[in-house]
Amino acid sequence: MHVIRLATLADLEGIAQLLQENAPSQGGSLTGEFPTEKVAAMLSAAICTVVAVREDKVVGVLFSTDAHRLADAPPVQAMLRAWSGSPGAYVYGPVCVAQTARGTGLPRKLYASLRQALPGREAILFIREDNTASLTAHLRLGMREVASFTLDGLAYSVLSDAPLA
Rank of each mutant, 00 (worst) to 15 (best):
M1Q: 05
H2C: 06
H2Q: 07
I4W: 03
L6S: 10
A7C: 10
T8R: 14
A10E: 15
A10V: 02
D11F: 08
L12N: 02
L12D: 03
E13S: 14
G14V: 01
G14T: 01
I15E: 01
I15G: 00
I15H: 01
I15S: 00
A16M: 01
L18S: 00
L19F: 03
N22T: 02
A23K: 09
S25G: 15
S25Y: 06
G27T: 10
G28Y: 09
G28S: 13
G32H: 08
G32E: 10
F34L: 02
F34G: 07
E37H: 06
K38W: 05
V39Q: 04
A40V: 11
M42K: 06
I47V: 12
V50A: 06
V50M: 09
V53L: 01
V53F: 00
R54F: 01
E55A: 12
E55Y: 00
D56Y: 02
V58T: 12
V58L: 02
V58G: 01
G60V: 08
G60D: 05
L62G: 13
H68R: 14
A71K: 11
A73H: 10
P74V: 14
V76E: 08
A78S: 10
A78L: 07
A78Q: 06
R81A: 09
W83T: 07
W83N: 13
G85F: 05
S86C: 11
P87Y: 02
G88E: 11
V91I: 15
V91E: 06
G93A: 08
G93Q: 07
V95I: 12
V95H: 00
C96D: 06
V97K: 07
T100G: 04
T100N: 05
A101P: 01
A101Q: 05
A101Y: 04
R102G: 09
R102H: 08
R102D: 09
G103R: 13
G103F: 13
T104L: 12
L106F: 14
P107E: 08
R108N: 00
R108I: 00
K109G: 00
Y111Q: 09
A112F: 02
S113V: 02
L114G: 11
Q116T: 11
A117G: 13
P119E: 01
P119S: 02
P119Q: 03
G120V: 12
E122H: 04
F126W: 07
F126Q: 05
I127A: 04
R128D: 14
D130Y: 15
N131C: 10
S134D: 13
L135F: 05
L139I: 09
R140N: 14
R140H: 15
L141V: 13
G142Q: 09
M143G: 05
R144S: 08
R144F: 00
F149Y: 07
L151W: 15
S157T: 04
S157H: 14
L159G: 08
S160C: 06
A162W: 06
A162T: 03
L164N: 07
L164Y: 08
A165G: 10
